[in-house]
Design a binder for these strands. Sequence first.
DNA 1: CGCCGCATGTAATTAGTTACATGATTGT
DNA 2: ACAATCATGTAACTAATTACATGCGGCG
Lengths: 182, 182
Amino acid sequence: MALQHAIMTALLEDAMSGYELAKSFDSSLGFFWRASHQQIYQELRKLSDKKYLSSETVPQAGKPSKIVYTLTASGSKALEDWVQGPSKLQDAKDDLLVKLYNLNHDNVAHLIAELEHRREFVMGRLYLYERIRRRHYDDPKSLSIRRKGVYLALTAGVTQGEQFLRWCDDALETLASVENQH
Amino acid sequence: MALQHAIMTALLEDAMSGYELAKSFDSSLGFFWRASHQQIYQELRKLSDKKYLSSETVPQAGKPSKIVYTLTASGSKALEDWVQGPSKLQDAKDDLLVKLYNLNHDNVAHLIAELEHRREFVMGRLYLYERIRRRHYDDPKSLSIRRKGVYLALTAGVTQGEQFLRWCDDALETLASVENQH
DNA sequence: CGCCGCATGTAATTAGTTACATGATTGT
DNA sequence: ACAATCATGTAACTAATTACATGCGGCG
């Protein structure tokens, strides 16, 4: 149900099509809520049924037409009600950390490779987000209140990523020494 | 499906009942994979059906009997296969950060309260994990290989929590100044 | 001609949440 | 008597994933 609110949140700033939403989830909001295009299209239909979104088909030159969704007044109200309501605990679900509980001589090498892979991914995302932050949120004090919120969230993501990299380097060192001992 | 592997991971060290597993998820492994008792009982049944776990009813003095589950050889094999396989991306789903995207004058106060609540929660968990780490993982170098993995995961959780607290204090300061401006 | 990016979806399945349900024992 | 902790589950529902499915336009 929260994906619906995440979608409406993304539409606060700009009206978008499902495809654009999916891409936007891969960059900005996706730091905090990942979603596949399939699920986005389904939730988009449900939100339209509830009249929280209105849609309009926009023809494009040289590209297929797209269906652009806009937040309605009642959608806006529902979103604000959700914001003012209680939050659930962040659900921690991380394969890789659970796998570390299973560390042994047979799987060290594999876990090292997986950590390195994750490190790459986090680095890439960090780079992307730092760029966004620099470009659009360079002077935090002059931002509108809403953008100050976005800035804070982005900062959370960035510092989280940086902290992961520090931990990761440490962990890789430990794992390397374990591997060398056999 | 990964909950099944998380359950088997928890049973690597000790045979446990569903109730004990649920409690253990609330403390150690739950940093990285949260689960309700209802779901645990369901997955326990599925794992038993697949013969990945064997169960034994253990009567207790002054308490109801419990059903203790033990990892079987084929369960152990399935677990190791999972560890050696590819991991999925960590799924980021955080209500609170999404809500921050909606920051405005009407909801600052509420978001401040929610952040403070989350801060309390993280502090409590941090305290708990620091204690576990100090008690059982005081000298990382002398640990068995498996416990070194657990130690690394625990460290990831702890530093992640510490990083959250730093960010949170920062964010609360920003939000307070926004609130005072009206 | 085949692949990639744009654009939209449905169907089937699995995972996870919420609500409901029971019953024993210990402490106040 | 009542609440709390221990202990185990079922049923109904919602959310999320995986697999499948289609079609246009541009580029090499």
